[in-house]
Amino acid sequence: MKSNRLFFRKNMIALTGLFLCLFLIVHLSANCLLLLPQDTARGLYNAYSTFLRENPLIMVVAYALYASILVHVVYAVLVLIRNRKAKPVKYAVNLHKENSSWASQNMGALGALILIFIIVHLVNFWARIKLGIGAEVAYDEAGNKDIYEVTYTLFQNVYYVAFYTLLAIPLGFHLHHGLQAAFKTLGFYHQPGLQWLAKVSLIYAIVISAGFGIIPIVVYFQ
């Protein structure tokens, strides 16, 4: 049987989205180390980073992560193109705020902002650490790459602090709608469960966006 693109694409977006949601939890938990006092944080954070870079399992997961982002974006674009075609003429007046959430109406734009964020984020960290582009990363006392120093230096720049913090907001909106929509797309329709899911999505979105939003500010004031 021929695959139905209306379902296939959304399912790909949902699956990759959920994987990315899971990743964000891990990523944020580790980044919480940055909230500790500088002396403690530096050692732990660098050790953790080294562990991630050297663990083969994590390396596999990392490729899955890159692929997820790519697939999520590619299918989102395909979906967007089809949706535009399905609605070629827009209404002169449209009060969609009265029947749906703002985030749900603007997932594409929110996603684009997040993509910009990811690119900047990758240039700031991944390119420097993994690809060695830019200034060489120093080693700490324990002999680990001093990723903490990279972070600390970056967040001494007030513009970067503002950028990272502000872009945690669209992330929150995107996650709030995306998490519940992903479950529904994958066929979760249990009625009380859906109400529960709506609450979990809200809490999740707030925690993730507040967490990522606060870290740069805390580091700035260290």
């Binding site: 959304k10 949706n83 959430s101 709608h177 529904k184 797309t185 066929g187």
Partner: peptide, 27 residues
Amino acid sequence: GHCSFTGACEVECPEGISIANIAEMNA
């Protein structure tokens, strides 16, 4: 187009048919 679960449909539906139907169809 694709369903992205904005939920607008169930609000405008004169019969108030729940969007959970779409999730069930997906399953």
